[in-house]
């Protein structure tokens, strides 16, 4: 068990470092000279040279990489060109908002998936089953930015119930969270429904029924516990998709999270910021995936036995 945990942690570290190195090299090789981007357009050659020395790009690439990795480990990703502030500070303001939006969306989507998926599995010919199929098909087809735009049109422009964008408390979370939920719900709904259908066929459920146990208790306690395992895997796989959706929703709703920041950075060709955002976000993913993997081992003893 301990060796498994250690191995997974080590793997995660290697993945983060690999991503950091790749991002660094790709940006340095293809993005051009940061000094030229940073310096005023008609700067004198000696001014540009000064910028080069400041960024340390007059030194060999390998040395730059080591310096970069060294300071990244200490949480220093350099100065943003656009905001004239440390990249780390900017990220630390934006990241919690993104994680909040992602967390709320995930929670909302999981609750709907569990309730609706169970009902659909239980009564395959009912309105619930139909609704779950329709919601899955629609969620899979509608891009986040479109459902986001329609939500804004209906609830912010039309009914004036909720703010159309920005971040001013809990109300600002509702519309973006619904848009993101719509996009991540389909997979979870399908997976839970299928696994619930399979679990309901199992002997132990039939036994419980034969013993006359309370129907709701059988389904929502005994069956759901096992039906949720595949759901956990899906969450791990979908983390990337979830954050992708969150980034798009942030742009649509002008929600001041990491996605908005990344797009501003992209348009301003703010390399240090892009670099920092990519690496920090990637690291967030890897950590979430690691946690889910460890949680999975904790929840499902069969895996623990298999791996030790």
């Amino acid at each position: 068990m301990r060796s498994f945990v250690l191995r997974r942690i080590l793997q995660s570290v290697i993945i983060v470092v690999a991503i950091a190195v790749t991002v660094f090299i790709v940006l340095r090789l293809s993005a051009g000279d940061p000094a030229r981007i940073r310096a005023p357009v008609f700067a004198r050659p000696d001014v540009i040279e000064q910028y080069r020395r400041d960024f340390g790009i007059d030194r060999p690439l390998f040395e730059q990489l080591l310096t970069f990795l060294g300071s990244a480990v200490r949480g220093d990703f350099g100065q943003s060109f656009r905001f004239q502030a440390p990249v780390t500070d900017l990220i630390m303001v934006a990241l919690p908002k993104t994680l909040l939006l992602a967390g709320v969306s995930l929670l909302l989507s999981l609750s709907i998936a569990v309730v609706l998926g169970s009902l659909a599995a239980l009564k395959p010919r009912s309105g619930w089953a139909w609704m779950s199929s329709a919601l899955a098909a629609f969620g899979q087809s509608a891009p986040v930015f479109w459902s986001g735009a329609v939500l804004v049109l209906v609830f912010a422009v039309g009914l004036r119930w909720l703010p159309s964008g920005g971040f001013s408390g809990f109300a600002s979370l509702i519309l973006p969270a619904i848009a993101v939920t719509l996009s991540i719900l389909p997979t979870q709904l399908r997976v839970l429904r299928t696994s619930m259908e399979a679990v309901l066929q199992q002997e132990y459920i039939k036994t419980a029924k034969a013993f006359g146990l309370n129907q709701n208790r059988i389904i929502f306690v005994y069956a759901l516990k096992n039906a949720c395992l595949p759901l956990l895997t899906v969450i791990g796989v979908d983390v990337g998709y979830l954050l992708g959706g969150v980034i798009v929703a942030e742009v649509v709703f002008a929600f001041p999270g990491i996605g908005e920041l990344a797009l501003v950075a992209l348009n301003a060709r703010d390399y240090p910021l892009i670099q920092g955002i990519t690496i920090v976000t990637a690291a967030t993913f890897v950590i979430v995936n690691l946690l889910i993997d460890l949680l999975y081992v904790k929840v499902d003893p069969r895996i623990r036995l298999e791996r030790t």
Partner: peptide, 20 residues
Amino acid sequence: IDIQLAFPYVLLAIAITSAV
């Protein structure tokens, strides 16, 4: 496969289009 699935594609797109 694991890395690719875990990595948000929008961020990948932002990183690449900032270079190309």
